[in-house]
Simulated scan of single mutants.
Amino acid sequence: MNIKQYLDSTYLKTAHQAGLSESENLLVNQRYIQEAIDEDFKLIMIRPNVVAVARQMVDAANSKVCVGTVIDFPLGQSALDDKLKEAEQAIEDGADDLDFVCNYEAFKRGEVDLVRQEVLACTKLGLQNHKMVKWIIEVAALNHQQIIQLSTLIKKVVLDHFKEDQYNSVFVKSSTGFYLTENNLPNGATLETIIPMLENASPLPVKAAGGVRTFDEAAAMIRLGVKRIGTSGAKAIADGQVADTSY
């Protein structure tokens, strides 16, 4: 198993969240991008404002590392037009993967049509531009039944509106890594949340984001059927060490 080709190396902190200046935080982003190139990870996942920088660095290195970014992050509650505009800019800047935060709060309120419309429109934009699309459902904000229902909704939209050879380009993804839980409960991927995702998103692939900190944990997720793993500790995992980062 070449675990590096499952790893989406991730840095999504703003300068404020990292306690850094904008220029200092850009240097951190650049270090993550360079590490992804050097280690030949599947992807580098960064915020939209860093996509152009990542694209330039990856292309200059003649690297196959994909450039990914998050859309409507981390809450997913923006209007559809705003989601689409942000995704269009990321595409223009050179992103390969678009990880949209699903409006899971609207879903929990029963606004299923709103969620269905955003999944359809944003997925269509991504696929028309030959991009990988991932839908973050924020499992820590959902109960078991809601994980099943939202995974199923995304699957049904894709199966109803897109061709079979496009299914592998639309993921259901567990977490932003930024959701604040009570009592220090996990806010990322766990076996309890990933298994119902795998069972109900199929044939769409699943990405486990957050909570995977060791090579063995990553390998266990992959054996279950997970196709991508999002982590800010990609090198530690690949080297058989314990990632000490929260995402």
Rank of each mutant, 00 (worst) to 15 (best):
D165V: 11
Q30D: 05
F73C: 06
T193Q: 08
E192Q: 07
E92I: 10
E35N: 06
A90E: 04
L127P: 03
V206K: 04
H161S: 14
V67Y: 14
L153T: 01
T214D: 15
S21T: 14
P186D: 02
L98G: 12
Y179F: 15
R47K: 14
V115W: 01
T190N: 05
R116H: 11
A79L: 09
V206Q: 02
Q34V: 09
G188P: 00
N168Q: 00
C122H: 04
V50C: 14
L12C: 01
D97W: 00
L26F: 07
D239I: 01
A218Q: 06
Q5N: 06
L180K: 14
I37W: 07
Q89G: 05
R55P: 07
A234I: 05
H130R: 13
Q17M: 13
T190G: 08
M132V: 13
N29E: 02
K124I: 07
D8V: 09
I237C: 10
S21N: 02
V51K: 14
G210V: 11
C122S: 08
K173G: 02
C66S: 09
S23F: 05
L84M: 12
A52V: 14
A218D: 05
K134L: 14
A18W: 14
N49Y: 02
L12N: 03
Q56M: 01
L20M: 04
L75Y: 08
S9G: 06
S63Q: 15
Y247F: 02
E88S: 10
S169A: 02
E105Q: 06
K227V: 04
S9L: 14
A52I: 13
T181Y: 05
C66M: 13
G211F: 00
N143W: 05
K163D: 04
S63V: 15
T181F: 09
A36V: 03
A201K: 08
T152Y: 06
C66D: 10
M1R: 09
F107P: 00
Q241Y: 05
D239G: 01
E138L: 00
I71G: 04
N187L: 04
P74K: 13
Y167L: 09
V112W: 03
K85C: 10
I154A: 11
T14M: 08
Q89T: 11
S232R: 11
A141T: 04
K173H: 03
V67G: 14
L125G: 12
I147P: 06
T214A: 15
K64C: 05
D93Q: 12
A218H: 01
L191F: 03
E24A: 12
S169I: 00
F215P: 10
K156Q: 10
E217W: 10
D244R: 14
A209I: 12
K131G: 12
K13Q: 11
N200A: 02
G240H: 05
V115G: 03
S9W: 15
I194F: 04
Y179E: 10
M221L: 08
K42R: 04
E118A: 06
V28W: 08
Q166V: 07
L204V: 01
K207Y: 10
A90G: 10
T214W: 14
I137L: 11
C102D: 13
G233K: 08
K124F: 11
N2K: 10
S232P: 10
T176R: 13
V28S: 07
D113L: 06
F100G: 09
V206M: 04
T10C: 04
A18Q: 09
